[in-house]
Design a protein around this nucleic acid. Structure first.
Lengths: 262, 262
DNA sequence: CGATGTATTGACCAGCTTCAAGTAACGTGG
DNA sequence: CCACGTTACTTGAAGCTGGTCAATACATCG
């Protein structure tokens, strides 16, 4: 995909190959995101340090690091995770384009969780004090940060509900429905019943809080019963999506609202 | 306990029996909370509608309510919870004095979780638009709200880790250690090895994501092995606290920082 | 072509749930 | 003050869900 010609201001600010100014961020024009006022974009642009690209498996934030940065995911998948001292690992959430990364880290001394790329990804990097700067410069941006933090909390609550009270297959169904809803607002990811799905069984298991073997059994069961169709190694389809949501005891349709983009 | 004499300004602002102005809030002078600048206290005071008192079992926020309010818990215990349509219930977090309540609710249409009193409690009630007002009036207060939201997210992550990767007894140990750390900064709650503990087995089970029977078995096991001593129906002791933290695979001592109070 | 990592599956076992029943504590009305 | 209903606590037995271990197949990659 070729970039459209850049305005002079944009050209000055874009320092790396393929980088773009916030005002022409491809995510911002999507219906799932708030447009953002010009003065908001100026502030955000001023906090942006540049973009970076990672391959699957590389870390954005090391678990326990002292000086982690702030990012917004532009393209690709990542996950947040925490580990127990004996090696058991739990994936806390999956991160998709538009997600703001590192908020919790800036509020504590050491990073409380790691963030690792699950696919090749591109992300925007911000100054370390960006969270405070957003509040100081423009209250509406501070509010947006709070909104994002609160929203992450709600998603975390849903995860707690899944782990605490949903069976293995219900958990998996809930994850698939949730991912579908988040992806469908993004380009390329959901097309005519086909949905990007780069997660391995290990990653599924670590999100579900189950053993690899049992996560696999639950997956096979959903496939066998026709809830999930594997189109290619990285692509699935979810026919009967509303019924799948019912299987997971999720409301349908899922509530959604445009979210701010930092 | 008798209130100290109020300054003239405080007397004018205190509208109900026993109410006090934010500037003389008993919580604020505790070491676990930030002091707050005078202009911050003025803004908070301006958003305060009054105080309310509830008995155990009464709801602060109804699950699914459309117009829930904002509170700060002054005294007593509460919990946030979510339910599946078939009645399975999951407690998301326990709320203690100083906790800000209702943040997630203001960011979505309908309340995503319920909040119910677990003991007799007193809470501060704020205007519905207080979250936005805090950001607009004073960036430092907006930052505090973000800090609180992010902190709730971190605690939620810990809960996810417990439910996903800790065994029943490890989960219970983690809860007890965490509650002890939160309570010890509050008056009356932790005294010479004795710790307030009003939770029922049902509530423990709903937090742990386990059946009542098994939550009880885990509890008995910790008591039998001497990790927990039951001093009275509402009071326990945790001898060997550091070892209990190790049992839960928690770091010791737990990291802590003074938190803002809204 | 071996080396590595992921997907897949079976056998066996353990942790946890369900069901059932009995006990203790408490509040209320007589 | 006691009878009673209600709720919380307690425990055992049986069975299901999910964990552990092991082995095979399959891919990708240097």
């Amino acid at each position: 995909m070729k970039n459209p010609p850049l305005a002079p201001l944009d050209r000055r600010l874009a320092r790396l190959q393929g980088e773009r100014a916030c005002a022409s961020c491809p995510l911002r024009s999507l219906p799932g995101f708030e447009a953002g006022k010009p003065e908001e974009l100026d502030v955000i642009q001023g906090l942006k340090l540049g973009e970076l690209q990672l391959s699957a498996g590389e870390a954005l934030i090391q678990e326990g690091a002292m000086d982690s940065a702030l990012f917004t995911l532009l393209d690709g998948w990542a996950c947040r995770y925490r580990s127990l001292q004996d090696g058991r690992r739990q994936i806390l959430s999956f991160l998709l384009p538009g997600d703001f990364i590192g908020l919790q880290q800036r509020m504590t001394d050491a990073a409380v969780h790691g963030v690792v790329a699950l696919t090749t990804l591109r992300a925007c990097r911000f100054k370390r004090d960006a969270v405070w700067a957003l509040h100081r410069e423009l209250p509406s941006l501070g509010y947006d940060v709070t909104w994002l933090a609160a929203r992450e909390g709600v998603d975390g609550d849903e995860h707690v509900l899944s782990l605490g009270r949903r069976s293995a297959t219900e958990r998996l169904a809930a994850l698939l429905v949730e991912l579908h809803e988040r992806l469908k607002g993004l380009p390329r990811h959901v097309e005519q019943e086909g949905m990007e799905f780069p997660l391995s069984q290990r990653q599924l298991a670590d999100w579900m809080g189950l053993s690899l073997a049992h996560a696999h059994r639950s997956w096979r069961q959903l496939v066998r019963q026709g809830w999930v169709q594997v189109l290619s190694p990285q692509r699935i389809a979810l026919p009967r999506l509303p019924e799948l949501a019912a299987l997971a005891h999720l409301p349908w349709p899922l509530p959604s609202a445009p979210r701010p983009l930092i």
